[in-house]
Design a protein around this nucleic acid. Structure first.
Lengths: 134, 134, 134, 134
DNA sequence: GTGGTCTAGACCACC
DNA sequence: GTGGTCTAGACCACG
């Protein structure tokens, strides 16, 4: 379900946050779906439960999940998550474009990369049918 | 020449690397130009010489400068630097576009951001001869 | 009779305590009224009997109900309950006012909030005879 | 500087957050004042550095402080902190008033408590002269 | 020295 | 069983 990259400079808990929120945005984890328990995910990933706990804490802080003592952690409203993620991606794009301008890149170079990407990926984005079965 | 932002979360040495490589790419620091000595730059910025040293090491590792013992550090080939920077920016754009696709963003949303940015910024990029005040 | 909010961060048993003591203070549950049995309330709310048991224990500890072995649990003196609740609310208000002073809030700001609240709510507090639907 | 209450049900890190943010709002800790280091505060309070770390993390998340690797943690803009705190206090007052109405308390009872409090405390609130010496 | 991350293992509250 | 908090101690990056 999740693959950690130990060569990645980002902390593990952050990778977990990204991976899980990605699954929510992609529609693989739907509203109110229970997440794996802190302990079981820690076992699966061979990491310390505290690290998973921290990732879940962050996800809850972001409003992506909600946790109930003694019950477990569950996916919150994916709609909000998507909106939030889109905004932050657009913000990152602004920063990146700024650097691109400084580096002397042309507008076309950037857009053409985006264009090819969208045409390469569109085949995958069809999977919009749906399971919600828990 | 360089203004540090102490509230920036990135380490100081990284800010120096970015600022200096930016000056090279913009053509303000040209090939074989001597960089300020580690000590003098540290004095200028009121920071620890170790920090400047680390920035220079990083710049050398990236191939942006070359150091001659007892002589100092000098700007390497700006052409290469520009290419290198452009490639890494394009690579980042690919990763970002991937995430944008996942988040359900449309191609137009991305390109329009880039478009507005280029039209907002172009006025600045013309006077490529000038100032060095950062 | 009681609606649980599973997204509420407070534990279930505490919600039950609050809801039930509220009904007593409002005069809907009068002195010596028998409460539903632990089992039946647990069934009604689709929760674990342990949780209901804990709520009843808490209510007894507070002196809001009294339990007779083999007979069930009954509402204690609502007058006392009301007094108790009022005192604890006033105590909380003192603590809150203390913090308000520290935060530089003016007396008027606080009182005006209370004022609007009372004028917004008074319409509801009149029909003190009625419904039991919570 | 800070006294922990181990009988308090709230976690220690939360008490630290409250105590420190209080000192900021009261004007005792002014903008850019360095906070005690994670380790030293942990020593002072005889608690684990991780617990202090968590409190600082929370304070940073709230925008009350900013932390610099290798430098320390510093007080952010107290103005913002005050506004934020005031809003949350007013929100708590709304919730409390709601409960007061349910418990049959009169508007006057609440306001008179606030009134006495403000007249008891006003003698203290004069200390607005102010050192900024670090 | 500083803050940030992680592990290992414990205890609590809740269900 | 679950999540939440805390401790003890380690390592890293940064200045």
């Amino acid at each position: 379900m999740i693959l950690l990259d130990y060569k990645d400079r980002r902390p593990i808990y952050e990778q977990i946050v990204d991976k899980l929120s990605d699954l929510m945005v992609r529609g693989i984890l739907t509203e109110n779906t229970p997440l794996p328990s802190v302990r079981s995910l820690a076992m699966d990933l061979s990491i310390n439960p505290n690290t998973v706990q921290r990732a879940y804490l962050e996800l809850e802080r972001l409003g992506y999940i909600y946790s109930l003592k003694g019950k477990g952690s569950f996916v919150a409203n994916p709609e909000q998550i998507r909106n939030f993620k889109q905004q932050s991606i657009l913000e990152e794009l602004r920063l990146l474009t700024d650097r691109a301008v400084s580096a002397g890149l042309e507008e076309d170079a950037l857009c053409s990369i985006i264009h090819t990407f969208y045409h390469k990926e569109r085949s995958y984005t069809i999977h919009k049918g749906g399971q919600a079965d828990d």
